[in-house]
Amino acid sequence: MTIKVFNREKIVSKGIISELRKICSRILCHANVLGYSKDDQFAIHLALEEAVVNAVRHGNKQDSEKDVTIEYELSPEKIELWVTDQGMGFKPSDVADPRSGENIYKAGGRGVLLIKSYMNSVEYNNAGNSVHMTKLNSKPV
């Protein structure tokens, strides 16, 4: 008999990075219990960190009265994550490639690239204030 472990949760928090990191830690604990590899956990951790920082800094413009919503759906096969802020949104296609030309010498602008690189799929809503990321379990039980 196969027991399917399945978690889904939506958490609305004030846009304070330290508070949001506690939620990220909880998600990573669930991923660990479900047998996600250390590499997968590293990828999930990095993508969540970058998405949360983007939501607070660029989305909510550091306004701690604005919320950030983290939603996740976790199964032994994959984890889906949504990070949503209350900002004006952005067009991912407008983000310059941080690897090109002089951009490589800029201090910022690498978060979106890292999210895309470490997740299996990344989608933004039309408003550009919510990112939906999916990571497949590379070694499902």
Partner: peptide, 13 residues
Amino acid sequence: QFLSSAVLGLLIR
């Protein structure tokens, strides 16, 4: 063992 893109910015500086 772990760093984010913010650290890369510091390394550039």
